[in-house]
Design a binder for these strands. Structure first.
Length: 319
DNA sequence: CGTATTTGACCTGCGC
DNA sequence: GCGCAGGTCAAATACG
């Protein structure tokens, strides 16, 4: 994927660690997707459920922690270290998705929290929006969603090819923010990666836009969401690298029934940035991952039960 | 040589 | 209007 030639990325010491280190214990990713299943099975658009209100925070992390939002987490991660209840929705019918792994949450586990940004919502503050340098003043904002990942590496390989086009120091944060763009010609998806100033072990990745092409890199079959089996059983073999895949919806839809799990030893988180229906939230979240059939839910829970405390799976815990 | 990253400069929006 | 901060560009540089 990307050529990492210069390890000394930035002043960020953590950037040097290998992703394989991180994923070896990165099961929490699956937890995220399973939990929301219990939420609203389709009664709500995830768009409504997850809202990023103020995107104009000085840092994404700030945004996620915006206190203005009443805590109504679907599930509250019982995090030993940092509480990652992020982006609590402001409306009753909203919910937040956060994930965490409860066990082994010590060092190198990876936690991811997903959230979506609505265009309308950040109307108020458009200061951070894409500004095509005045060429197209009324450019539409692409759907965005961000997630937090407990990771030692800044840039997670999600299967797509990204080219870094900028890096900026972030106010109030010792860690710089990196800007990436999908290298595919017709695809204008961007992503920002920054490390939380509050918890340096947390990487906040924000995707903006929708891939107009299938995932170019499907390392050992990166289809579907990160399977529990892969996470726990798999060794995420370092060689392949770690993937954090954000595949296209159709892609995933065709396979998820038949191949609920990766063949990929590499734990892979799948995301799809689709803007279908009334929500631009990743479609996989609207499908099995988040709204599974009872049976699949059960099955998932079967696995989850080994991982997550019942409280986490069942009810939101307010903190 | 082609591709990706680095990094300073530039642009834009917002707050004072 | 000015300064600040975020976001982007593009030349220079590094790497395979």
């Amino acid at each position: 994927m990307e050529k990492k030639k210069q390890e000394p990325k930035t002043e960020n010491p953590m950037a040097n660690s290998t992703f394989s280190d991180q994923i070896q214990t990165s099961f929490p990713l699956s937890g995220i997707f399973d939990m929301p299943c219990e939420v609203e099975k389709g009664s709500l658009g995830f768009m409504d459920m997850l809202g990023i209100q103020d995107y104009g925070s000085s840092s994404l992390f700030d945004l996620f922690q915006t206190p203005a939002m009443p805590p109504q987490p679907l599930l509250s991660p019982t995090l030993p270290e940092s509480s990652e209840v992020v982006n609590t929705p402001a409306t009753p019918n909203s919910s937040s998705i956060s994930s965490s792994s409860t066990e082994a949450a010590n060092d190198d586990q990876t936690k991811t929290t997903v959230m979506e940004d609505q265009e309308d919502q950040d109307q108020e503050k458009s200061k951070k929006q894409l500004k095509p340098k005045k060429k197209n003043p009324k450019r539409q904002r692409e759907p965005r969603f961000a997630f937090m990942t407990k990771s030692e590496v800044d840039h997670l390989d999600d299967g797509y090819r990204w080219r870094k086009y900028g890096q900026k120091a972030v106010k109030n944060s010792p860690f710089p923010r990196s800007y990436y763009r999908c290298t595919t010609a017709a695809c204008g998806v961007k992503k920002r990666v920054e490390r939380s100033s509050d918890d340096p072990s947390i990487v906040v990745t924000t995707y903006e836009g929708t891939h107009t092409h299938p995932c170019p890199v499907t390392p050992r079959g990166s289809i579907g969401i990160m399977p529990e089996s892969a996470i726990f059983g798999g060794s995420c073999g370092g060689g392949g690298g770690s993937s954090f895949v954000i595949p296209q919806p159709h892609h995933y839809q065709h396979h998820h029934h038949q191949q609920p799990y990766f063949h990929n030893p590499t734990p892979t988180l799948n995301f799809s940035t689709t803007t279908t229906t009334n929500s631009s939230f990743p479609s996989f979240l609207q499908e099995r991952r988040f709204c599974p059939s009872p049976s699949s839910l059960l099955r998932d829970h079967g696995l989850l039960q080994d991982i997550l405390p019942s409280q986490v799976r069942k009810e939101p815990k307010e903190e």
